[in-house]
Design a protein around this nucleic acid. Sequence first.
DNA 1: TGACACTGAGTGTTACAACACCTATCATTA
DNA 2: TAATGATAGGTGTTGTAACACTCAGTGTCA
Lengths: 156, 156
Amino acid sequence: MAKELRDEIQQPKPFRSTYEEAMLNIVRTASILGDDGSQLFKPFGITAAQYNVLRILKGSEAEGLCRNAVRDRMLTRMPDMTRMLDRMEDAGLVERVRDSEDRRHVTTHITAAGKKVLKDLEGVVAERQKKLLGHMTEKELKALTELLTKARDRAR
Amino acid sequence: MAKELRDEIQQPKPFRSTYEEAMLNIVRTASILGDDGSQLFKPFGITAAQYNVLRILKGSEAEGLCRNAVRDRMLTRMPDMTRMLDRMEDAGLVERVRDSEDRRHVTTHITAAGKKVLKDLEGVVAERQKKLLGHMTEKELKALTELLTKARDRAR
DNA sequence: TGACACTGAGTGTTACAACACCTATCATTA
DNA sequence: TAATGATAGGTGTTGTAACACTCAGTGTCA
């Protein structure tokens, strides 16, 4: 049987409400899985957020995307997209081109090096996901996704 | 009906697996709810992690806890506990006493000011949790907690 | 009793997140 | 067509997360 959160964090008192219990379980689980992901990406020289950016740009490989479009598609909030793209450009993972029509626009593209990182990670990531969640049934995973979708509904 | 993740992040392609879908939903939901929490705590001059520390110390008010004990009870990983407690000590929220028996130990206690912050936040937090998750039934919240507990089981 | 390992706390350094602010370019309209 | 506002991108600054490392005090055992 899986260990309950109260045991994990050695909390003596019960949670104040099922709201609180669910909330803390969400945060805790994301933290654990996110840390795991960070370790996974580290040998490849990127962060989880950068992996996210690469996947977004891969999805719009032909056209490229402007800074704000990338930011709006991010899984987690990222207020300083400019400097994150700076770093990725320095690392050769993306490249930016200023639009000649509307000179305010700068379009960002994934580079061949960026695509290589994604390709190298593809199997590793899938394998890790299966290792972490492989003990859950399809039905459970679907139910979890639905409940989380509902949990987000009132926020924002 | 709640908006699905793929719409939120404007992802054209379907997820590669239910593992991936669940994983990204966990991270996304924690990010959204976590950001909300940060905004809630900000007017009180503390971060979500500091709120977590205060609650942990409140739970061991009489004895106090050493740095590592606090760290091990944290909801999210916190490698630099020392300087976080430094900041909280500077803010008057906690105080530290070096043990005279074993002079390696430093015991941290919550102060009256720290307890006041917790007390002021108590209602605000509960209200916010209800606002965010109040549309979910007890049964759903319990199911969500159980599924998340299972999802964490293979990590660490 | 001196060397060694262990445990707990703290420090140095780097890179990054967060926030507010600024600049350039374009669209609109009085 | 000059002023105004909107939009896209970038910059300055501060605090802090992350990582590796050091230091101090204690136990232990050859």
